[in-house]
Amino acid sequence: MIHTVNKSPYERNAFDSCLKHAVKGSAILLYEDGVYAAVKGCTAAARLADAVADHPVFVLGPDLKARGMDPANVVDGVRVVDYGDFVDLVVEHGTVQAWL
């Protein structure tokens, strides 16, 4: 199972609801406005840092760059991926749960 979040953690509760429902070991991918949660120093990043211990966490690089966020400045343990990796992750994990 891979969970995807594309909404800002400050505008919707999709990010927090995802963290509450994702079982240990399932993957989490942040894209579009969801990437803001991965940026070090914001209040949501602290919650994501806790999740990294239990989940492989990914963030889409092109969406970070579009928003002026440095891919080198994401929460420790979060892996920055591109669109090709996005496809591979979906194929690898089979089921996608999209938190819209």
Binding site: S8, E11, D33, Y36, D63, K65, A66, G68, M69
Partner: peptide, 23 residues
């Protein structure tokens, strides 16, 4: 206010998402 402050973030580069950078 709120997420609106993100509109003004420096360094936006939208080449990778195929959208117009209006910052």
């Amino acid at each position: 206010v709120d997420d609106g402050v993100y509109e003004l973030k420096k360094g936006q580069d939208t080449a990778g998402i195929g959208m117009k950078n209006f910052s």
